[in-house]
């Protein structure tokens, strides 16, 4: 049976939407920690608490099975610390439109995360806002904060530009 051009185009659009849904479902499962498979348990993170870190990138590791973003920033108590934030795999982030060269050491960023339960200065990534305002989600729609509820734009001098109170 011969299909008209428009039918074929519509069919492709439908397929793309369908496959995008499948990807998002897969990513949701990967990130919410309720997966069929996961590299490790996410029980170590307090998913009920959200912390925003405004600080400077020390390093970004694009390694599987998880990315790592090391940020120097004051925590909720105002003490500047080195934060080790675990993100999804680089393969997932690239499919969420992240570009490794957009995040360099020294960049000022605003990072939203769920902290570790044990109180050590680490957490699991929710979203990252770059200095130019570009918002990168570490989780697909439906996971993490609603759109617009991400970290506020980076403001004020970066940590280390003065001597913040209680700096270690």
């Amino acid at each position: 049976m011969k299909r008209s051009r428009s039918t074929i185009v519509e069919g492709r659009g439908r397929l793309r939407r369908l496959t995008r849904r499948v990807w998002l479902a897969a990513l949701t499962v990967a990130i919410t920690g309720a997966p069929a498979v996961a590299h490790h348990s996410f029980a170590m993170f307090d998913r009920s608490k959200t912390v925003v870190l405004n600080g400077t990138v020390k390093s970004a590791q694009w390694t599987n099975p998880h990315t790592w973003f090391v940020i120097i920033a004051p925590g909720p108590d105002g003490v500047v610390q080195t934060w080790n934030i675990e993100g999804p795999s680089p393969n997932i982030l690239i499919r969420l439109d992240w570009k490794p060269n957009e995040i360099q050491a020294g960049d000022r960023v605003s990072l939203t995360m769920n902290p570790r339960k044990d109180g050590s200065s680490g957490g699991v990534l929710i979203a990252l806002r770059l200095a130019d305002g570009k918002m990168l989600n570490g989780s697909p729609p439906g996971v993490g904060p609603p759109p617009g509820a991400g970290p506020p734009p980076v403001a004020g001098p970066p940590p280390g530009a003065g001597t913040p109170p209680g700096a270690k």
Binding site: S41, Q61, T63, V70, T82, N84, E86, P90, S120, G122
Partner: peptide
């Protein structure tokens, strides 16, 4: 996309304990 498991930070031991390799 290439995916090589490096397990660069969190080590999971056979008995299920996890250790961090945090950057200071």
């Amino acid at each position: 996309i290439e995916y090589i498991c490096e397990d660069s930070r969190i080590q999971v031991t056979p008995d299920g304990r996890q250790t961090y390799g945090d950057e200071k």
